[in-house]
Amino acid sequence: MVTLLFDGLAYGMLLFVLACGLSVTLGLMNFINLAHGAFAMAGGYITVVLTSRAGVPFLAALPIAFLASAALGLLFERTLYVHMYDKSHLDQVLFSIGLVFMAVAAIDYVMGSQQQFITLPDYLQGRLDIAGAGIGRYRLFIVVLCGVLAALLQWILVSTRFGSRLRAAVDDQRVARGLGINVGAIFALTFAAGSGLAGLGGALGAEILGLDPNFPLKFMIYFLIVVTVGGTSSITGPFLASLLLGIADVAGKYYIPALEPFIIYTLMIVVLILRPQGLFARAR
C-alpha cells in the first residue's frame, strides 16, 4: 500500500516537472503548445546519448539535459513561436502538431524507433526498506529531486522579483506592459525554463515512462489533463493535479488492471463535469 502510494507519488511528481512549463506558458501567453512533449523527448534522448555513448555519469547528464532542452526551447521560441502568439488557437494547435510530427519523424530517423533505456548508476538501483515498505531508490530520488524543484519554483514565483513580474504578466498582460515590464523577455525566459524542466522530466522519466519516438504523442493527453485540471493561474494547481493523476493511474494499474487505461479518462470526465474551470482554478 505504502509502496503503491509512493510509486504514484513519484509518477505524479514526474508529470508535474514535465507539464509545469506548459501550464505557465499557457497561462502567460494563452498559447496552446502541444509540442511541449517534444522538448521532454529531446531531454530524454540527450541523456541516453550522453550516458550510453559518451560515458557521462547519469547525475552529470541531468543538468546537461536541462540546459540543452532550455536552449532548444529558447531557440524555437525566438525563431518560430514568437510569430504564433497573436494567432488563433486553431493555428497554434496546427503549428504545434506540425512540430510534433517533425520531432517524431526526426528522432525515428536518427535514433530508430525502438525503446531506449538508460542505465542507472548502482546507487540508484534496488529498494530500500523503510518501516516495512519497500521503496525503490530511484523513485525516492525522483520524489526528493522533484519536490525540491517544486519548492524552488514556488519560491521563485512567490518571493522573487522575476516571479512577481511573471505573475503580473499572467494576470493582466497589458497592464503589466504599461508598468514597464518586458513581457516578451519574461515569456522567452519562462518558455526556456519550462522546456528545460520538460527535458529534465524526460531524462528522469525515461526509466519509468519509457522513451521512444512516439513519446510526445503518447503523453500529450497527460499534459493536457494536468493543465486543464490544475488550472494555469498558479503552480500548486498543476502540482496537485499531477499527484492526483499519478496516484490514480498507478493505483488503478495495480487494483483493477483490466480497467487501467480508462482510469485517467474517467477522472478527466468526472472532474470536468464537476468543475469545468479545473479543480483548482479560479473561475474567470
Partner: peptide
Amino acid sequence: DLTRLMITLGV
C-alpha cells in the same frame, strides 16, 4: 478551447 482539445482527444 483547451478543455475541448483535451476532451476530444481523450474521447
